[in-house]
């Protein structure tokens, strides 16, 4: 597998043109839009706290059957496209009331670039995973971003209820271990990314891109 440079450049250009992600806030059900709690351009916060126990900023109040419900923000960003015309009106379910413009951070862009460019090995089953012993040894010697892996190498060990299954690399070619997304012996849901591999010939290019992002976007 090789990195599709064209796609990557397009993605980068997209981020550059618009380094934001907009999240529309829709009504969960029908009801009267009683009151807006924010103005256009206000900064709103998502849930915070160590356990996300502090709810986000209140956005507006939707009332149905004498049950006023406060709709809160679930993202960080600024309010835009506030539909003032809906105020004191009956609103259908699924109607977009406002949008939250979320400025992308450096980490978010990098992780998105990596996910789209790296060869990501995903968890085949919900289980606990550890790196294979050979890989751990190699990592200790060479370090992250320099460990080479080729086809047929044992990558990971999936362990669940004392049953252990090795996972091998099936893609042809040589790769570099670039990212580890899990913690040893942590329960990983099926389909979640485990490790990210970069083709050995593309490594200089990828590093260059990431370096550029780090320079251009202040975190």
């Amino acid at each position: 597998m090789k990195i599709n440079f064209q796609e990557l450049t397009q993605l980068l250009q997209k981020f550059k043109a618009n380094p934001y992600k907009t999240y529309p806030v829709v009504t969960p059900h029908t009801g009267y839009l009683v009151e807006f709690k924010v103005k256009e351009g206000d900064y709103v916060a998502g849930p915070t706290g160590e356990w996300l126990e502090k709810p986000g900023t209140p956005l507006f109040v939707l009332e149905r059957e004498k049950n006023p419900k406060i709709i809160r923000s679930s993202h960080f960003g600024t309010v835009q496209n506030l539909r003032m015309d809906l105020l004191k009106k009956f609103v259908e379910a699924g109607e977009t009331v406002l949008e939250i413009k979320h400025p992308l951070t450096q980490e978010e862009i990098i992780s998105e670039i990596l996910l789209s460019s790296l060869l990501v090995v995903r968890a085949p089953e919900t289980a606990r995973y550890i790196l294979s012993q050979e890989l751990v040894k190699k990592l200790e010697q060479k370090g992250m971003g320099r460990t080479k892996i080729k086809e047929g190498d044992e990558l990971l060990i999936m362990t669940f209820m004392k049953r252990e299954t090795p996972i091998y690399l099936k893609e042809p070619g040589e790769f570099i271990l670039y990212q580890i997304y899990f913690k040893p012996f942590e329960l990983v849901q099926a389909g979640s990314p485990l490790i990210g591999l970069c083709p050995i010939e593309d490594l200089p290019y990828l590093e260059k891109i990431i370096h550029r992002i780090k320079e251009e976007w202040s975190s």
Partner: peptide, 19 residues
């Protein structure tokens, strides 16, 4: 009372409003 209330866990479990 003729009204509905929201379950406090509706964010997590998607409970419909209760009469």
């Amino acid at each position: 009372q003729d009204k509905t209330v929201t379950c406090p866990q509706s964010d997590k479990y998607g409970c419909p409003d209760l009469w």
